[in-house]
Design a binder for these strands. Structure first.
Lengths: 332, 332
DNA sequence: GTGAAAGCGCTAACAG
DNA sequence: CTGTTAGCGCTTTCAC
């Protein structure tokens, strides 16, 4: 058991208030007593009790981070950035994973609220009025990344524009036929539409906006779980070369592998473009064309926004866009 | 501000003790008052204040997880497993990253101790008597993974044997010349030997034990940062085919890429074997020979051990080995 | 400059 | 079965 301020007070023959002043660098104390107290604190290996401190101060100096999982590089990279940004401001991060389970997400949020985290950064898997009400009832500042929630602060790239630009990029590489691959959209409508798919939806909308605008374009959206087989069939049936624009690098890699295993060459027989520019791409050949999202930037910005919300100093704008960039590759 | 037990007590015209009994399912209360209390709690959206609860109970139901970073898949996968295992037992996990900085590691540990985490799971970057003393002074149960610390509970694979077996596997694939690639070992001796490299050292020792035992074997250990160039030179200079046994899949992938960029074919001109079996390998061609470590298993086991230590129910053994497996590939 | 006292919200031991 | 009381360790206000 570490020593407490009370004991230090006794040892130094001063009051607890004085010890507090010394240990927290507060004013109104002679340098003599301050030094005495600091020294005994060191001597007895004093360790402040942050739970007690939080209780009386009403701030826990901790934040909650809630993601699907940490297996996905997108989340682990972002968690890394958030964790660092948080610590540099004195916050520690609880990280919890929902495994895309709506009930888990709910429980985690309540638990974190009970732990009195000062703020939350999350990628919500749920949407809808009820959920937003519940979130607001926690009375904790929240910043979302990836999926959006109306009325809640959000940091992300402009998914719509990024997808729009990507479609344009693919088309300028000579493709007249683009297929958007986005398996998560399967879930649309499930559970009374409670799944939050805003990020994916904005991407598909950006894609459609471009392809519909350009009358020469043929387009399709693939949401099958087994999109590899579906894509292979499309390629075989059509003589026109198709580009597969995947809503995430992971799907692009899966597709690349599937096509390779089925003797379809990229980019000779079909084109592929990904999204996110995950760091594992450096090891992949051919180099995947993709959209680079600065995940670290999103994480940092999200933390910054959260701190602003917590301190209430300045109200940050509701949505903060982080720049993105088209990354050319050898797969188109 | 959520309602407190005190307010509930007033509303229900009972004492705080009774409210506590009702809300925590403790015995000694009539079902009538219990129901009344539960209902008002629900009605007013009561949320237990876990900080206060922790303070008086002396348990925070939180654990600290300390790794180099979360960019490395090894750590993020493990964090994911730990986070899940923890939550299933009611614990939440603080996750902090050191970025391989000894001073950061120290600060993080002290901060977590101040937050009164009930236990710690870490991959220490520091070693030495002073560090161990400091760790023990925290008076918190600690479980290490990866790197070891004498006298502290540890969960991992048997690195020595895994490396030994791998060397044997490589040799049985026909190689008479094996080069162990392990850049982290460069740090050996830096900062008065404070860097903890036990995991890597055990691997190199296992490798050496095998190669030294078999007199026909030629061996070498590469620790250069720029190991790709060094390896390429070795390959060019010798007519005998060399296998590069990399202490981590990451190095193996870097090497594979480097050699490919320099027109050296694997496995025609040289062999490569990795370590860890990271999940990104599924996307890599040629399929990398490696050693599979069940990272989830290590994470789960570490949490299990930690819970045993916290509860003090049964003292777990000091070292717990998790099985590993040689994974054949196309790179040998 | 320093001390005394009340309080953060919950828990636990004891008395009735 | 229920109430009272005394904490947990730190913070903060107010008086001296």
């Amino acid at each position: 058991m570490p020593i407490t301020t009370k004991q230090i007070a006794e040892i130094c023959h001063v009051s607890r208030g004085t010890v507090d002043r010394a240990l927290n660098g507060r004013a109104g104390i002679s340098s003599k007593t301050r030094e005495l107290i600091e020294e005994t604190a060191r001597k007895y290996n004093y360790r402040p009790h942050l739970l007690a401190s939080s209780l009386s101060r009403g701030k826990s100096m901790s934040i909650g981070v809630v993601f699907f999982d940490l297996k996905n590089r997108f989340f682990s990279q972002m968690s890394n950035a958030i964790s660092l940004a948080a610590r540099s401001r004195g916050y520690f991060t609880y990280i919890a994973v929902t495994e895309k389970d709506i009930e888990s997400e709910k429980q985690i949020l309540h638990n974190l609220a009970s732990r009195r985290v000062d703020g939350l950064i999350m990628l919500p898997i749920t949407q809808g009025k009820d959920f937003i009400r519940e979130l607001k009832e926690l009375e904790i500042p929240v910043v979302t990344v990836g999926n959006q929630l109306p009325g809640i602060h959000h940091v992300s790239i402009d998914e719509f524009r990024a997808a729009y630009d990507s479609a344009h990029y693919i088309s300028s590489a000579g493709y007249r036929r683009i297929c958007f691959v986005c398996p998560p959209l399967r879930k649309k409508g499930f559970l009374d539409g409670r799944y939050n798919l805003t990020s994916q939806e904005q991407r598909v909308q950006g894609f459609l906006a471009y392809t519909k605008k350009n009358s020469g374009m043929k387009y399709k959206v693939l949401t099958e779980k087994d999109f590899g087989a579906a894509a292979a069939e499309m390629i075989r049936k059509s003589k026109e070369k198709t580009a597969f624009f995947c809503s995430s690098d992971i799907y692009a890699l899966d597709l690349l592998k599937y096509l390779g295993d089925h003797l379809i060459s990229v980019p000779e027989d079909a084109g592929i473009m990904g999204f996110d520019n995950l760091d594992i791409l450096t090891y992949i050949k051919p180099r995947l064309a993709t959209v680079s999202v600065s995940i670290d930037e999103v994480g940092k910005k999200a933390m910054e926004t959260l701190v602003d919300l917590i301190s209430g100093a300045k109200k940050p704008g509701h949505t903060c866009y982080v720049p993105y960039q088209i990354c050319p590759g050898e797969t188109l």
